[in-house]
Nucleic acid binder design. Structure first.
Lengths: 112, 112
DNA sequence: TATTGACACTCTGTTTTACAGAGTTATATA
DNA sequence: TATATAACTCTGTAAAACAGAGTGTCAATA
C-alpha cells in the first residue's frame, strides 16, 4: 500500500507546506500568524522540514531587522506534489475488492 | 485557517479510513494484512477511531471463529468526506497573497 | 546614550502519540 | 489431548508534538 510521507502528513506541516507552496516565501512571524501556533512548535516543525531539505532558509538583511525567510525547496515542492498524488490515489480508491477476505483456509461452520 | 481533523490526518488512520470506505467492512487481520502494521499499533489506532465513533464494531458469530468486523460509521464517513474537502481546499490554495508581509510597522533601512 | 519594549527566534521540559512485542483466549488439526 | 495458529489486547518504551521561558537584537523614547 502506498505510503504517505509522514513528514508532510501531519496537520501543521501539511498546512505549512501548503502555505509556503502558495506564498512562495514567508517569515517566521508570518507563519506563526497564519497557522496560529506557538513559537516553539513552529520552530520544531520548521526544523524537521529544513532537516529533510524540504524547506530553504534565507537571511534577508535588506529590512531593518534581519529577517529569516522560509520557502519550499525544489525537493520540498516535489515531495508535496508526490504527497498530493498519493492522497488522490488513496482517497479515490473506488474498489479495493469489497471486503475480499484474501486467501484464508477453509473454515468449517461451528458444529451445528 | 481550516483545520485538518487530526484523527484522520495521520498516515495509518488515513489509510485505515480510506480502506474501510472502499471495502465497507473488514476484519482485524484483513486490516493488518492490508496496512502491514503490528497488532498493537493497529489495535491502538482502531481504538481511537472507535472512541470517536468513526468506526463501528460488529461481532460476527456466523464464521467458525467469532470475527470482529470493523466498518466506518456514518459519523466516520462524514468526517472522511469533510476531511477530503478540507484537504482539497488546502492543497489547491492558489494565491494566498504571494508573501504579503501583513501589516508591519514602517521599517527604516539599516543606517547607511 | 541609557532604558524600555517588542520582535524574532531558539531551547528545554512535559505531555501526548505511535509503536512493537509479549500475553491471552479460543479453535482447529494431529 | 497436545500443539499450533488466528484474533485480539495489554503494557512498556521510544518518538513526536507542544508550550512557554529564555536569549539576543533593534529601535523608539527620555
Amino acid at each position: 500500500m502506498e505510503m504517505l510521507d509522514p513528514l508532510l502528513h501531519q496537520p501543521l506541516r501539511t498546512q505549512l507546506a501548503a502555505f509556503l507552496a502558495g506564498a512562495g516565501e514567508a517569515t517566521f512571524s508570518e507563519l506563526k500568524r497564519q497557522l496560529d501556533v506557538s513559537d516553539g512548535n513552529l520552530d520544531s516543525h520548521l526544523k524537521k522540514l529544513i532537516a529533510a531539505d524540504y524547506v530553504n532558509v534565507r537571511k534577508d538583511d535588506s529590512a531593518a531587522r534581519t529577517q529569516t525567510c522560509y520557502a519550499l525547496s525544489p525537493t520540498g515542492r516535489a515531495a508535496l506534489q508526490n504527497y498530493i498524488l498519493a492522497l488522490q490515489k488513496l482517497l479515490t480508491m473506488d474498489n479495493p475488492e469489497p471486503s475480499a477476505p484474501a486467501k484464508r483456509r477453509e473454515t468449517k461452520m461451528k458444529a451445528a
